[in-house]
Design a protein around this nucleic acid. Structure first.
Lengths: 227, 227
DNA sequence: TCCTCATGTTGACACTGGCTACTTTGGAGG
DNA sequence: CCTCCAAAGTAGCCAGTGTCAACATGAGGA
């Protein structure tokens, strides 16, 4: 789907005609279902119905394929974040900025929970990803920065508190995601998780409001994009 | 060190006499240096100077050993947190409670950065750890809960905000740790990291103060246990 | 029509790493 | 002193997995 192709030529002839894309698709599916460590070249070949090591005509080695899959994973994360951002419909500029920050957080956690394998891969070795998908890998951070800038622009977040806000917000939702997919808090059901996430987002909102002395109410933020 | 043993008997005879403990020690060292995936039975045996598979006299399989190492890792984390908590010397009850929460956060990140491998293992598969080291694995959470209860008791944190506070605080420091050891934010040097961590802790402190309308200053928290 | 070469196939190699049999050693109890 | 058995050793199986080398195929251009 996200790879944007349509089975172009011969599909069962000697020459697959679309192997590279098919391999990536199978890889994405595998990672999504069984995690990054399940990414085995021979398995991919089997899934696509091709001999083992046919992949070597399209990827120098396993790493190259993994890197590309990681880039795709990052793209999907960014896409999820964008979708969430567009759900905010309020006109009030302050409320809008606050809700957009909350939505980006919900999108992040939503992706982590729904696409655990891809999420893990995307952050497994940023060294690798950063080398290849430089622009894509920084997009989540850029998106977050935009939201935070908006909060400053509307006077909700103070410039001093703005300084470390990226790290703070990102840490919050990233840690929340990891603890919920990796154990520790993974015993929570969906409702508990959503409630706890609201708690986190409200805490951040309250903190940033307090940085400029702006009073906040949980209801300002938790009623929006539910579901 | 933490294993609390002292090479008891013969050390180079046919019977090692201390293999189990030695293996665990080597395993901890290996994980600390090269990460959880470097935990290979044959390597451990080599390090200890014993034949491969001698380990099977003391551990049913690899998983059992890994689980025990994970438990040790968790113990060390808890020990680090305790050390940090005891650094707080203020008498003012409110300030004390606030600083204790901040210190527990610093301890968490300190451990993650200093003992990256052990930190990863401790949280790699809590399912495994939770089965064996039930009490130990919950200690970090219990410690955090105690600090938060103190904050409520002294009137700094509101009971409503207390509800999801464990998840919020833990998420913050856990995510901060992961992003710094795993890439994404790992390019930051020590000074940058410390500054960003202060930013996170101040944000949490400000949020919780705001929950009861208590004004806060960054200086209340950032001057304490530096280093 | 025929050649070429990108694309796939077959087969094997190297290596890792968990695990199993079976054997050997030597400390401790009788 | 002798015997037993926990503890360690030796040897090797086996499955998985990345990778290389040599060969096969067939679509498209000359």
């Amino acid at each position: 789907m996200l790879l944007g192709y349509a089975s172009p030529v011969a599909s069962d002839s000697y020459h697959h005609g679309n192997l590279r894309t098919s391999l990536l698709e199978a890889a994405v599916a595998t990672v999504a279902e069984r995690g990054p460590q399940a990414l085995v070249l021979r398995d991919l070949a089997r899934q696509v119905g091709v001999s083992h090591n046919a992949a070597y005509r399209h990827f120098a080695d396993r790493d190259e394929l993994v890197t590309e899959v990681a880039a795709i994973a990052m793209e999907r994360l960014v896409a999820t974040l964008h979708e969430r951002l567009e759900r905010v419909s309020t006109d009030d500029p302050v409320l809008r900025a606050r809700q957009r920050l909350a939505e980006i957080g919900r999108g992040y956690v939503e992706f982590a929970v729904a696409e655990t394998g891809l999420f893990r891969l995307a952050f497994a070795s940023t060294a690798t990803v950063a080398t290849a998908g430089t622009s894509a890998s920084r997009d989540p951070l850029a998106l977050l920065a935009t939201c935070l800038d908006e909060l400053v622009a509307v006077g909700f977040l103070s410039p001093e508190a703005r300084v470390d806000a990226e790290a703070t917000c990102w840490s919050g939702v990233h840690g929340f995601s990891m603890l919920h997919i990796d154990g520790a808090l993974s015993s929570a059901d969906d409702a508990e998780r959503d409630a706890a996430l609201d708690g986190l987002l409200v805490a951040i909102d309250r903190s940033y409001g307090a940085s400029t002395g702006t009073p906040t109410e949980p209801g300002d933020i938790v009623s929006t994009g539910k579901g």
